Simulated assay, not measured.
Amino acid sequence: MGDTEKLRRITMTPAALRVLAAAARLFYERGIHAVGVDLIAAEAGVTKKTLYDRFGSKEQIVVEYLADRDERWRTFLAQRLGASHPAPLARVLAVFDASRAWSAENSLKGCSMVNAHAEISDPSHPAYPIITGQKEWMLGLFTHLAGDISPEGAGHLGRTLMLLHEGALVAHGLNVFPDPIAHAREQAQALLAATGDTTVKQ
């Protein structure tokens, strides 16, 4: 998130961690607007007073939920990129592989940021910068990786890779056809091979 330092975050006590775990599960499974603080408190085994003492508002719980998802995804992706083959083509494909693995384990109903944006479209909402910030960061990552393949066309190539990636995440959540992220990976590989980078075959 480009504006991480501007976000208000809270210190996590054991009770706050229970609230966050319950809220994260409920928000992802049922939707942010559909879940109230009464249900979150009940699922976390805390009182509403404790919930408000720790977070102050439901909006802050949403901030913590999305910020935590974003941080965990970035750490997961960094580990996958760190372990990938250093060739430019392999590093781009490693992003798709990471998304496929992450989605299978953490995002059966699709990208949490895309889902959240369907409910939070007001830029004044404190969680909005987290949602858009992650996608801006992903575009920056794809553009950077594309620059190692085609420096003069990095911007265009990065946007194309981003569209393949994000479209696959949406298709994964909709479950319209099987394994859309693998399909997007194949299309990305074909696109990158056409630029002349064939140093690593996947």
Rank of each mutant, 00 (worst) to 15 (best):
G133D: 03
A146Y: 00
G173D: 09
L89S: 14
L77A: 08
A171Y: 03
T143N: 04
D148S: 14
I61T: 06
A104Q: 11
F142Y: 13
R100D: 13
S150C: 13
G158Q: 01
S99E: 15
T160P: 02
K135P: 08
H125L: 02
V170Q: 09
L66M: 02
L139F: 12
W73Q: 10
E136G: 11
P86C: 04
Q60Y: 03
M138G: 09
Y65H: 12
R80Y: 10
P123A: 07
A94Q: 12
G133Q: 01
N175R: 15
L164E: 02
R74Q: 13
T132H: 13
P129N: 02
A94Y: 11
H85R: 11
A168H: 05
T143P: 04
K109G: 09
A146K: 00
E136S: 13
R91A: 04
F76Q: 04
G82S: 05
L81H: 03
E71W: 03
E105N: 05
G173R: 08
D148F: 15
W137E: 14
I61C: 08
D122V: 00
T75E: 15
A104Y: 01
M113L: 14
Q60V: 04
D68F: 03
V92E: 07
W102R: 01
F96L: 07
A127W: 10
L77E: 08
P88G: 01
A171H: 08
E71Y: 04
T132W: 15
R80D: 11
M162D: 13
A118L: 15
L145H: 09
G133C: 09
G167V: 00
V92P: 14
D97T: 10
I130H: 07
L93H: 10
L93S: 11
S121R: 08
I130F: 09
T75C: 08
G140L: 06
S84P: 08
N115S: 12
L163K: 06
P86R: 06
L161K: 07
F76G: 10
T160R: 15
T160N: 11
T75V: 07
F177E: 09
G153Q: 11
I130N: 06
L77K: 05
L141N: 06
F142H: 14
N115T: 09
L108A: 15
P88N: 01
R69G: 10
H144Y: 12
F96C: 07
Y65L: 02
L163W: 11
S107R: 10
S99K: 15
S121A: 14
T75K: 15
G158Y: 00
A104D: 11
A104G: 15
T132D: 12
S121E: 09
A104F: 01
G155C: 06
W137M: 10
V176W: 00
S150P: 06
H172D: 06
